[in-house]
Amino acid sequence: MNGRAPISGVVTTFNNAATLDACLASLAFCDERVVLDSGSTDATLDIARRHGARIAEHPFDDYGPQKQRAIDMASHDWILLLDADEHLTDAGRDAIERALRAPRADGYRLPRQEWLFWKWAHPHTRANWQLRLFRKSRGRMNDVPVHAAPVVDGVRRDLRAPFRHYGEPRLADRIDKVNRYSSGLVVHKHRRGVHGLGGRILFQPTIAFFKLYVGKRYFLDGWAGFIAARTQAFYTFLKYAKVLEAQRSDDQSA
Rank of each mutant, 00 (worst) to 15 (best):
R217K: 14
Q204F: 08
L131E: 07
Q68G: 05
L110Q: 08
S253C: 08
D173T: 02
E97M: 08
D251Q: 15
E245W: 02
D77G: 00
N15Q: 07
N128T: 13
V243P: 07
H165D: 07
I47G: 08
R191W: 04
L197R: 07
A84T: 11
R180Y: 02
D176G: 03
D42T: 12
R156G: 02
R160C: 01
R140Q: 05
T236L: 00
I55K: 15
M73A: 04
R33Q: 14
S182N: 04
S26N: 03
R54Q: 15
A70N: 06
K239T: 14
D143Q: 00
H87A: 11
L133W: 04
I227F: 12
D42S: 10
G222H: 04
L100R: 05
L116D: 11
A161E: 06
D77N: 02
N142Q: 01
S40A: 11
A121M: 15
L202Q: 06
D106Y: 05
C30R: 05
D77M: 00
L110P: 08
S249I: 12
A246P: 06
Y181H: 13
D94E: 15
D21K: 10
A246N: 04
R157M: 14
L88I: 10
R93K: 09
L81R: 03
K177Y: 07
S249V: 12
Y181Q: 14
L82W: 08
K67F: 08
I55M: 14
A148Y: 01
F163V: 05
L171T: 12
H58S: 15
